[in-house]
Design a protein around this nucleic acid. Structure first.
Lengths: 338, 338
DNA sequence: ACTTGGATTGATATCGATAACATGGATGCA
DNA sequence: TGCATCCATGTTATCGATATCAATCCAAGT
């Protein structure tokens, strides 16, 4: 009797309960009109049969998947993870599920990923950043679903935006550093053509220095992203060799800033007395390391939460204009700077 | 002329190309038999029409979704992120996509999540850990797809396993600590009933101490998971108050170990001279912090890679027995211990 | 010339839930 | 009592790609 029997369908559940398949379908929905006892009978029969709702059929017929597609540069980044978690929590109460993909900081890869994700017919798509290939832009524009660009303030948004100006945020940090007396200020970041947010931050750094009439040559490129702790340490080593009189350094993220800090510790260089360090992103490590890290809070979770709100509003028809949520990053001054 | 026209289907592409829908379908597959020129014509027409392949229909008819469902406790954990990334990379070459959900270290939440994921009809499901609710076990057993439990060695596996013994790994660390002369050894971890891997690690810790005839009372519970840096620092504070003569402490993860280390630094307690510290998981931070962290490498990426291999083998019919891949964690001895 | 076989393409039915419309019975109100 | 409503449920057709079977054509082998 080891016949491979096909898994039960709604029709099977309907037969067992003595109702129509349509009633079974309704019983599995939240707010549809089925009597309490019918619903319980249906669910009991389903449980007894081991029935598992088949959303592939539901998706096709109802033209809804309850997916929210999301692209992030890296799955290993705590900032983006925070955003995704808040986004996921925000939309899950409406039964929406995150379909996540990572681009590895590569716009060509992003294009492929976006195409893949759109085939799954998500209800909306959230992308990290505002720089895309022309084809990716076209795919997003024509997708017929809400598009939300995050972690950036694109000049020509495709649809909605929940983000902040990376350049401006760093600029404010430079302004602060200058105001407390630092003059020889360096920047540690990745290659120009990969990490677009990192590039924006560097642009803000340079613009600020120019504005203050300071030397803009202290730029250390730490290679292709992700720029993490190891790269930060390596970059600090380079910085100390090439510009030993540097007074302060701003890093593209807290991770690289922490790496830079450890390099100073290994070399017995006093932070912040000999050199000040600032990071970006307010990662957990920055608050707890010794000395604690001056940084910029970009409100990663809030980006996710606001994006979720925006998506729900759009899907509820409460918003027909492109939404624009601007986050205002905060300077967090701690022990690695005066 | 602002009529809302429905998005084009394969039938539209077929009409435009002058072939049958079936041929269009074939043109969109990798290895199906279509002539080169037909395929190009089809793809050109599709591009001109802005056609986007609709996988909801494909999923239903072909009974394949190309999803691999994955549950992890937290999306913000670098270890699990490493596993997921390696898994994703491993299966993506076969066109398989990860459908990710997180359980927040809660088996009831895991049950809900597993049910949600199974409705999407994945080709296989990967779960983190070997402890589940009875209903979750039943759902997984009856799903009719490969089930892979990871990051653990369950006594009664549901299907396949790619993992290691958390207890044994910590036991080896204790053995090492005893061999170099530590006697008063403490453990910092989470609450017993949430983080099952953390609980296993603590069990291994206690078993090892018992084996060596040492005091097992130095246990600090840092609250519900995730146990991160802040919790590690708080726990170290408690430990120093309650057991000031402790010689060494093993933490449930590198993050809590780093937090504990920073607490020592803030208090001017010498590590490792006054107290030794060990972590778990070989996170990036452990290799780069000063002093660097003694830890256990659980090979998170390898778990993902092996899981991917196993899934591909099963889906290719190359494996009909339940697979059992045992990872052997490595002790990594660094500066926070002698 | 005839068979065989591979390559390419087409016709038809189908995957399983549900949108849209229809129906019967109960309830409310004048 | 009569008519409008609402609630619970049923009927039918359908979402869009593709599994399956069938047909055509051309080259190769005998």
């Amino acid at each position: 009797m080891d016949t491979i029997r096909k898994p039960p369908t709604m029709a099977d559940v309907a037969r067992r309960t003595g109702v129509s398949p349509m009633t079974v379908s309704r019983a599995f929905k939240r707010d549809s009109s089925v009597s309490q006892e019918t619903r319980e009978a249906v669910l009991r029969a389903a449980e007894e049969l081991g029935y598992v709702f088949d959303s592939t059929a539901s998706n096709l017929r109802s033209q809804r998947t309850d997916f929210i597609a999301v692209t992030i540069p890296s799955i290993n980044n705590a900032n983006f993870a925070d955003t995704v978690r808040a986004l996921s929590d925000g939309v899950s109460e409406r039964g929406l599920q995150i379909l996540l993909g990572y681009t590895n900081y590569d716009v060509a890869e992003e294009e492929r990923l976006i195409e893949q994700l759109l085939r799954r017919k998500p209800e909306a798509i959230v992308v990290t950043g505002g720089k895309h290939t022309p084809r990716a832009r076209k795919l997003l524009s024509n997708a017929g679903i809400p598009v939300i660009e995050t972690w950036d303030l694109p000049e020509e948004p495709i649809g909605h935006v929940v983000g902040f100006s990376n350049a401006l945020a760093v600029r404010e940090m430079v302004d602060h550093f200058v105001s407390v007396g630092y003059r020889k200020i360096a920047f540690i970041g990745g290659d120009a053509d990969r990490d677009t947010r990192g590039t924006d931050r560097r642009a803000g750094f340079i613009a600020a220095l120019v504005h203050h009439g300071l030397d803009t040559s202290r730029l250390i490129a730490a290679g292709p992203p992700p720029i993490s702790m190891r790269e930060g340490a390596d970059a600090m080593r380079q910085l100390l060799e090439r510009f030993p009189d540097t007074e302060a350094v701003i890093c593209v993220s807290d991770l690289s800033a922490f790496g830079a800090l450890t390099e100073c510790q290994r070399r017995g260089i006093a932070v912040p007395d000999r050199i000040a360090i600032a990071g970006f992103g307010d990662y957990e490590i920055g608050a707890i390391c010794v000395p604690s890290l001056t940084t910029i809070n970009a409100f990663a979770s809030e980006i996710g939460a606001k994006t979720a709100e925006l998506i729900l509003d759009v899907l509820n028809g409460k918003l027909d204009q492109p939404g624009r949520v601007t986050i205002r990053p905060d300077l967090i001054l701690r022990q690695t700077s005066r």
